Simulated assay, not measured.
Amino acid sequence: MSTSAGQQVQVPAPNAGLVKLAKDIFAGTCGGISVTLVGHPFDTLKVRLQTQPVDKPIYSGVVDCARKTVQWEGLGGLYKGVTSPLMGQMFFRASLFGAFGASKRWLGTNADGTTRPLVWSDFYKAGAMTGFVAAFTEGPIDFYKSQLQVQIIKSKMDPNYKPPYTSVLECVRQTIRLNGFKGPFQGLSATLLRNTPANAAYLGSFEVLKQKVAASYGVATTDLSAATITACAGTGGIIYWLTIFPVDCIKSAMQTDSIDPAKRKYTSIPVTARLLWAEGGVKRFYKGFTPCLIRAAPANGVMLLTVDKVTTWLNKS
């Protein structure tokens, strides 16, 4: 469906929705792999800074965290837990971009089946719906990734600590054995609270920025340069994190807590928020913000550029 202002779109054929969905999933998966390869090291630093003890910090800042990570674990330490997001990209990006494409098509379809051009508010609505749906696939991916990323912190806090699992698959087996179906969804409530407004801001801003730039140059959004799309996507990524970073701190605390419900410290969003506040007030909710912001523009720029270009290529073929 075209998003150019004033352009009328024909009613799709019965199977057109499935074809568009398949294209959205394929393009989203390609974008997801690219963002993981570019952004995972920054995500590792973010999670470790967010979850280290405040009273006895292991890292003094983002540079120290990067230095100690490489010193203690080699370069591979920066990619700790990367198996989870790589393995889950097809499912997560299928839900993310599949839902985004379907949401835009639904919002642009009238009750009688005819279509209408999307207005700017529609992109933000579609982004919010997308964030809610995608949380159910992103939540488990983030949970397993985070569990492995913080093992080094636990080992430095306790010399007798022995990691209960050394791989994502081992973590999957133990969480399901202990908690059943609910195991991978530890911290899901915080993921939903983060994702819904964040993706409204992220995906909505990306689409609106493309529309505004294209209109200013008098071209279609598909004719925008790679640099322009990357800039729009990077700006959307920065807006994403500026919108919800404190909630992300809550999510990280809940997801890196014990997988045994009886041993958990962060049992709900209100409890977690109260405990984090007690550790350092407002500043506690911005631990790890620097690597996150450094990552936001290049990683999200690369991802949405990949998605945009792959989608354009698929629609032309």
Rank of each mutant, 00 (worst) to 15 (best):
T130R: 07
A128G: 03
A99D: 06
W106S: 12
A99Y: 01
K80H: 08
G113M: 01
Q89K: 05
L107I: 02
E138G: 12
R105E: 13
R93C: 13
K104P: 00
N110I: 05
G77P: 04
A94L: 11
G131I: 11
T109V: 09
G77T: 02
G131F: 05
M129E: 07
G88M: 15
W106N: 01
L107V: 01
G74V: 04
P85V: 08
A135T: 12
G77E: 03
A126P: 10
R93S: 14
G113S: 05
M90H: 01
A111W: 07
Y79E: 08
G127N: 04
G81I: 09
W120L: 08
K104N: 15
F100M: 06
F123M: 04
T137Y: 02
L118R: 09
A111K: 13
T109W: 02
F136S: 11
P85C: 05
V82F: 05
V119Q: 14
R105D: 15
N110P: 03
G98N: 09
G74Y: 13
F123R: 00
F92S: 09
G108L: 03
F136L: 12
A128M: 11
V119W: 07
G81M: 02
T130S: 11
F136E: 10
G139W: 04
G139R: 10
N110R: 14
M87T: 05
S103Q: 01
G101T: 09
N110K: 15
G101F: 06
V133S: 13
A111C: 02
G98C: 06
F132D: 10
A128Y: 08
N110E: 08
Q89H: 00
F91K: 02
G139S: 13
P140H: 10
